[in-house]
Design a protein around this nucleic acid. Structure first.
Length: 547
RNA sequence: GCGCCGGUAGCUCAGUUGGAUAGAGCAACAGCCUUCUAAGCUGUGGGCCACAGGUUCGAAUCCUGUCCGGCGUACCA
């Protein structure tokens, strides 16, 4: 008794009308409830094929359709040719029963059964603390991973990082300068492009405290030791911050391993063997212009070091080799330019890049007192993700960072986030859950027995039906949210669900109603609690029992 | 210059891939608590969907052009 069957009724009717190829029949829930429970515009898609006006086609469909009275209460034509369907209470009670049976698994699907997916997110190099932009990446990435999990995929959550290279040298030099300023002279010069954040001073002080003047000479070994200390410190903090957001990734992939395992070497050779690479000005170029892109790009610099593109390609190839069916990359919009290069390169090696799903999210601006808080690396005064977690808590952070479409520039309103009140949208959802819990607490307090069986066809009030309808949509929204890589879709749905519940709660008393109706309403409340909890779990937001 | 993303209510944003009267939260205003949590519910006001053309039964949505904002456009990652 799902929409699929409804669609079959229509397909059969269209067959009887002599249509050979049955087009996809799209259903939607009308915005206006008076238009019925479900609506299709199929009659308006067919005038060209059938050479008849839409309304005439709709009438013909209605004559040919064999509707099941158990399921469909009413079916009629409206407006320019919409066909509107109204379901029976029995249909709804059966759907509600199904939700209760699935319980904690309600919403889980098997679309991805037997398939492996990897979601790469966060992936910041260990040179400092996470800021809000990273937080957005982390929250979206983790939610998308959860969505794939609920769709039945075997999900690997991966963090890709590089602890070598220029940025890390820069970190090492910055730490050395701060170290020398403490132990030797406050006048010791700070590097031009160094990391100005106060955390560098903290790292340096820690080293001074433990190892005193051990590294004062500043030899290559000393610098290497400081770099390692900085890396460990930063990684520790990053993982701790992610942990606070309930994010624990499965795998940390080190870019270095691509070199040590010969993967970089291999990919260079393969490009050469395929005649896709050539030397110019002492550098090695990839012939991207012959693969449909605008310009050729350098993959190995004249210094002998690869550019970032090469390890990126090798890394993607590695993901293919590990046998993933879906490869999700989540990047901030500043990485956008490199993606076509990397994908084109990997494709030229014979991999199916359609498996790669690149998600790009826009930046975050932090607003406080109506003004933008600058988050520049240079200023040193850096508003970190930890600062935000301290101020507003992990639930608010996770929710705020996914509640807008990933393609829109996110304005993070610190004042709104800090507000512990009805203005804060995340509490609206959590409050619904807390209210539900308190209904059941009350039943226990009052020694009310909750029957296992209840006559769910008694649920006929407008707000009851509306709530059931909303509950039924949950799996569809998980799928939609996953397909589009848009956690916001699920967040919006949960807001709708909470709203439908609040209206039901307001209109329909549970405890105190006539016994049979009360029992049916307990069931509805239980299904709502399950669905809300499952949805909040996917978003990584807690479901409090009391507020 | 070129590429990607965006421009919808006073503010922040949705808009189910072209459908019925363009929605929600916040802000403003007016109601609803002796009964399961008022962090809630109900109602009112608020729109040249950036602008100009085009495509068709039908456009916020698709196509072209223009304007505005963000991010890129390296032998930096």
């Amino acid at each position: 008794m799902k929409y699929r069957n409804i669609s079959n009724y229509f397909a059969d009717a269209l067959k009887k009308m002599g249509l050979e190829e049955i087009p996809e029949i799209a259903f939607e829930t009308p915005k206006n409830a008076d238009h019925g429970d479900l609506s299709t515009n199929i009659a308006m898609q067919l005038p060209k094929m059938l050479k008849k006006p839409p309304r005439a086609i709709a009438e013909e469909i209605l004559q040919n359709i064999e509707a099941d009275d158990e399921v469909i209460e009413k079916i009629d034509i409206a407006g320019p040719g919409f066909i509107n369907i109204k379901f029976t209470p029995k249909y709804y009670s059966a759907e509600l029963e199904a939700i209760l049976n699935k319980a904690a698994d309600y919403g889980r699907q098997d679309v991805g059964k037997g398939k492996k997916t990897i979601v790469e997110y966060v992936s910041v190099n260990p040179t400092g603390l996470l800021h809000l932009g990273h937080g957005r990446n982390a929250a979206i990435g983790d939610t998308v991973s959860n969505l794939y999990d609920w769709m039945g995929y075997d999900v690997t959550r991966e963090y890709y990082f590089n602890n070598a290279g220029n940025q890390m040298n820069n970190l090492a030099k910055s730490i050395y300068a701060r170290y020398m300023q403490i132990i030797d002279s406050p006048e010791f010069p700070f590097p031009e492009d160094g990391y100005h954040g106060d955390y560098i001073k903290t790292i340096a002080q820690d080293i001074v405290d433990i190892e005193s003047d051990k590294y004062i000479a500043g030899s290559d070994d000393d610098i290497a030791a400081l770099r390692k200390a900085g890396e460990l410190w930063a990684f520790d903090k990053i993982k701790a911050t992610l942990g606070r957001m309930n994010i624990n990734q499965d795998n940390y992939f080190n870019e270095d391993s691509l070199y040590s395992d010969g993967k970089i070497e291999n990919i260079i050779n393969e490009f050469k063997n395929k005649g896709l690479a050539y030397e110019k000005d002492d550098a090695l170029w990839l012939k991207l212009s012959e693969m449909g892109l605008q310009d050729d790009r350098v993959i190995v610099k004249s210094t002998g070091e690869p550019t970032y593109r090469l390890p990126d390609m090798a890394y993607h190839r590695e993901k293919f080799e590990r046998g993933f069916d879906v490869i999700v990359d989540l990047f901030g919009s500043d990485h956008i330019a490199t993606i076509p290069d990397v994908l084109t390169g990997v494709k030229s090696l014979g991999y199916d890049t359609d498996k790669v799903k690149v998600l790009i999210h826009q930046f975050v601006t932090l607003m406080e007192n109506g003004e933008q808080v600058k988050m520049s690396k240079r200023t040193g005064k850096n508003y970190t993700l930890d600062d935000l977690l301290d101020e507003v808590g992990e639930d608010v952070v996770r929710f705020f960072l996914i509640m807008r479409g990933i393609n829109t520039h996110l304005e993070f309103d610190l004042d709104l986030a800090k507000e512990q009140s009805d203005k804060n949208p995340v509490f609206y959802l959590q409050y619904a859950h807390a209210r539900l819990c308190s209904i059941f607490d009350n039943a226990i307090d009052k020694d009310i027995n909750i029957d296992d069986k209840a006559d769910l066809t008694l649920l006929v009030d407008k707000s009851e039906i509306s709530l059931i309808k909303t509950l039924m949509k949950f799996p569809d929204y998980i799928r939609l949210s996953c397909d589009k890589g848009e956690p916001m879709i699920l967040a919006e749905y949960l807001r709708d669900l909470a709203a439908a519940f609040h209206v039901f709660y307001h209109n329909c008393r549970i405890i105190g109603s006539e016994e049979k109706l009360m029992q049916a309403r307990f069931k509805l409340a239980a299904a709502t609690k399950i669905t809300l909890k499952n949805g909040l779990d996917i978003l990584g937001v807690s479901s409090p029992e009391r507020m």
